[in-house]
Design a protein around this nucleic acid. Structure first.
Lengths: 206, 206
DNA sequence: CCCTTGCTGTGAATGATTTCACGGTGTGAA
DNA sequence: TTCACACCGTGAAATCATTCACAGCAAGGG
């Protein structure tokens, strides 16, 4: 288990899991690697390798047992207990992300939100209390939060990131169109619309 | 110019450009490859390679001329004329994306939006007409639209994608948490919250 | 029971991407 | 003018990721 699994494999495993959940819901009990592959736009060999990496195994001429596989992947990907997540910035995007999030990730819970606007703080948003951003340093450690979603304006992103890092956050999903500076050991996942848009624009031309 | 440039290089070039615009705005005239590298979290050698790929060049002991570099990158990345973009789905996320988009990409313009909800269609949203989704097939070709942003529910994503492909779209930025099937030649950029979130959650644990 | 089929698991090969390392060059100082 | 320096451009090496290809095996048919 302690073997190194690459970031890309982790991403694909997450994809496989999503597909497997759908497949299970529609009654599949066994699946071949190429079924998973076509559903997630990859190759059968890739699927087998990824599954090998988390030492789950299938049987020849029957394939992988969906329920077992889900258990393996979840055991690998998920923390033993649900992880708590902070959401920073409750503008349009922050609220849309929150709404999207709800009910979709049983193992991840947005338990705290922060904003700098006094009109938003001290109220419940989606049933979750919104605090002033300056309480971040205190609240994150006491709530055992190690992960944050950042939906603040680009100009504030680095400042808030520094606060998050000081508050003990080790993983950040950043929606602001800036490159964040973080110390080693802090993982940043950038959801960069601008870059994605421009990339798609580029490749949409023959 | 017709040399092959990898997808990753294109992404980085887009990042470089964003940084260069900031740098130019704050008065930089020349920059070294390692300046660009630290600002975009990559290596100096990587920057030089990427810039080499689009055959822009710097001078020793002065570095790259920011204005020239911007011109080269934009010449490489951008279409000769602004590209028109369709936005499909005007729920929370769609509107947030639209709001985010406005004024940020001079070379990309959202000129048409679509939804299936009659309450939304036939009205202006952000000064842009919203049409019923069934007009998609007619309107995209007549407006010369080759690129779309997809912010519809996951259940509808594939159906709408098929319509888009039939309407001649060649690039899709997909926000729905599903894997889309498209014919070869159509580029799909997936902005997948779920996967990013789970990946960050995974790596936020030691 | 034996043969055929089509799958998994995996070493080896290939391909893609990044980094190394160094020649060549322009700049500023002595 | 000459020297030292630091940078760019780039072949070569190293690293990382994916695909190939095949041994071994389980299941079903005759």
């Amino acid at each position: 288990m302690s073997v190194h699994v690459s970031e890309r494999s982790v991403r694909r495993l997450s994809l496989y899991r999503r597909f497997l959940l759908h497949a299970q819901a529609s009654g599949s009990c066994y699946l071949f690697s190429h079924d998973i592959a076509t559903a997630t736009r990859t190759s059968a060999a890739q699927v087998r390798r990824d599954l090998m990496a988390i030492s789950s195994s299938g049987t020849a001429s029957r394939g992988y047992h969906v329920a077992d596989l889900l258990k393996s992947i979840s055991h690998f990907l998920d923390a033993p207990a649900p992880q708590h997540v902070a959401l920073i910035g409750l503008g349009n995007l922050g609220r849309a992300v929150f709404a999207y999030f709800v009910g979709r990730h049983p193992n991840l819970r947005i338990t705290l939100t922060f904003d700098i606007d006094p009109a938003k703080t001290c109220r419940l948003i989606n049933g979750c209390p919104c605090h002033n951003i300056h309480e971040l340093n205190d609240l994150c450690p006491t709530h055992g939060i190690r992960m944050a979603i950042l939906t603040v304006p680009a100009t504030e992103a680095q400042t808030v990131t520094d606060m998050l890092v000081r508050g003990g956050i080790r993983g950040i999903v950043n929606f602001a169109p800036v490159t964040l500076y973080v110390p080693v050991g802090v993982f940043v996942e950038t959801m960069d619309f601008s870059i994605s848009l421009e990339t798609a624009a580029f490749f949409s031309r023959a």
